[in-house]
């Protein structure tokens, strides 16, 4: 626009300079962002590497692991169940008109169960856990860090990485798949109710169709990927908390970015998982 209106060459040049300097600023900014992104990725990789070196060595904090696993499962169970139920119900109601259009209403249980089991239930579970557990871990470890409780553990003969990080990461890695299986079941039940709102599908018919449709190649990858979701949520929450900056403000920021990064990672892992199952032709 500016170029059309301005015919004067000097003004033209200055506009050009202005634009190019803007571009340079943009490049500098993005270089900075890239730098911090890469250095943070490196830090997270190192933090994760430490998990694998510390995890096999004694002392095994089994009691603390059980406490965390129970706590994490128990805390998220109601929320995961309600959300999964609603998702099952809604997806079924939404899918019906399209299938009716093709005269394929009888396929409703088939289609709904595939989308719920393969994608929706595991991802919804992971996102809820990223929000609830990831932020919880980030805030808890963050406040322990800024109030020197982590240092206090260290001088009390405890390896805080093992006691706090390894136990929590193990707990999320093993608990979130259980929650996801539960979410699968509850969402299918929601689907059954959804199918019965308009049409009539008997209990037996619905479940027969579901189990006819679902094969090994649907269920196994979808459960396997939830282990990775759990691991990512645990490790990011711990990383953010453990490296919290001084001050209460730092704690809030840790909790916040734990949620953002782990939610993003859930989608990235999901994308990779889809590619792998596709390559292996599991479905």
């Amino acid at each position: 626009m500016i170029f059309i209106i301005l015919s004067n060459d000097s003004i033209h040049a200055s506009v050009f300079n202005f634009k190019s300097s803007l571009r340079i600023i943009a490049m500098v900014v993005s270089a900075d962002i890239w730098k911090s992104f890469l250095s943070e990725t490196g830090d997270i990789a190192r933090f994760t590497g430490r998990f694998f070196t510390e995890f096999p060595r004694p002392r095994y904090e089994f009691g603390e692991f059980l406490r965390q696993a129970f706590y994490i499962g128990y805390k998220s169970l109601p929320l995961v169940a309600i959300t999964a139920f609603i998702m099952g119900l809604v997806i079924t109601i939404q899918s019906r008109p399209t299938l009716v259009e093709f005269g394929a209403e009888a396929w409703l249980p088939k289609m709904v169960s595939i989308s719920l089991i393969r994608e929706i239930a595991p991802v919804i579970t992971a996102l809820i856990c990223a929000g609830k557990i990831g932020s919880g871990i980030g805030a808890e470890l963050g406040s322990m860090k800024v109030t020197e409780q982590i240092d206090a553990m260290e001088v009390s003969g405890t390896n805080p990485y093992k006691y706090l990080v390894v136990t929590r990461v193990m707990a999320t890695t093993l608990t979130i798949p259980i929650l996801a299986v539960l979410a699968d079941t509850v969402s299918l039940y929601g689907g059954f109710l959804g199918a019965n709102i308009r049409g009539v599908v008997s209990w037996d018919l619905f479940w027969n169709q579901v189990f006819d449709t679902l094969v090994f190649g649907d269920v196994l990858p979808s459960i396997l990927k939830t282990f990775f979701f759990g691991f990512a949520i645990g490790i990011i929450g711990c990383y953010k908390g453990y490296n919290s900056n001084k001050g209460t403000e730092g704690v809030g920021r840790s909790a916040n970015s734990a949620v953002v990064i782990s939610s993003l990672l859930v989608f990235v892992i999901d994308l990779i998982a889809v590619q792998i199952t596709d390559l292996l032709q599991l479905n």
Binding site: E140, S143, M144, E148, Q149, D151, A152, V155, G157
Partner: peptide
């Protein structure tokens, strides 16, 4: 560290 006690500036009591 068993033989050296440390009182932290911020107390560092485990609040859980």
């Amino acid at each position: 560290r068993v033989k050296v006690g440390f009182l932290f500036q911020s107390n560092a009591l485990y609040d859980s």
